[in-house]
Simulated assay, not measured.
Amino acid sequence: MRTELVSEPGERLRPNEDFASVALPASGLGGALVVLDGVTPPRGETGCLHSVPWFTARLGGALTELSVSSRDLPLPEILSRAILRTAEAHQSSCDLSHPRTPQATVILARWSTEAVEYLILSDSALLVESPDGTITAHLDDRLARLPRSALTTDALIDSTLRNKEGGFFTAAADPTVATRAVTGRLPRSDVRALTALTDGATRWVEKFHEGDWRDCFTFVRKEGAQALVDRVRELERADASTRTYLGRSKTHDDATVVHVEF
């Protein structure tokens, strides 16, 4: 097995809000990967004393531990328990009902000798390569399917869409959100490799149109995860003045890529 992990903040002087881990249990018979993209809140009150990196570190740590220590539990239950554990760590000091309480997108994948399971919540991507070279992108596209007119202000998003039916969901303080995740199970023999990317890295496909998901996977395999992030940074800098592709998005976003070959 070969693994590669790269995670970079969008700005050098700002903490990276992403989290990534790969866990290989001592048995050598399986493993798990976790990728979180912390949601940067707008300026103003969040109801919480803690930062987004504080939250992603604790949620990501809980997901990593539970994925390898509780292999009998389905992934939604693991996410639910990890959210609850994280919420309990600050519920006495923070208002966890606030719509901007710290939160994150989630990719969780776990493999054994028999199967590969996956869970996706919000706008990160999991690419799966089959033995014949086919690349399948597993996505939670609810946010992408919303009309741009519904996303004009943070207040509108928070009141009508964020963690609401008909909108989109992220991992925050409510453990029941785990039932909203996109999940699946594949025979282990049908999977040759996995690549997980936060939306700072999926810009290569989704904003700058350098290629499709297959091209993105091939780039990571041949050039490496760091090369993909470096290329995204080049494209961001080139578009910073005209904003032809970036539009209203931040110029640089935290970018994480995890690649696993079996």
Rank of each mutant, 00 (worst) to 15 (best):
W54G: 04
F55A: 02
F55E: 01
F55G: 01
F55L: 07
T56V: 02
A57V: 03
R58H: 15
R58W: 08
R58A: 02
R58V: 07
L59H: 01
L59I: 05
L59D: 00
G61K: 04
G61T: 03
A62D: 03
A62V: 05
A62F: 10
L63C: 12
T64S: 13
L66I: 07
L66M: 04
L66Q: 04
S67G: 08
S67I: 00
S67Y: 01
S67F: 02
S70R: 15
R71M: 01
D72R: 09
P76I: 03
P76V: 05
P76A: 05
E77S: 15
I78V: 15
L79C: 07
L79Q: 01
S80M: 06
R81P: 04
A82V: 04
A82W: 04
L84F: 09
R85E: 13
R85T: 15
T86P: 02
H90V: 00
Q91K: 12
Q91N: 10
S92H: 14
S92V: 10
S93Y: 10
S93R: 14
S93E: 15
C94R: 06
D95Q: 13
S97G: 14
P99A: 09
P99F: 11
R100Q: 12
R100I: 01
T101I: 05
T101W: 06
P102Y: 07
Q103E: 11
A104Y: 04
A104F: 01
T105Y: 01
T105W: 00
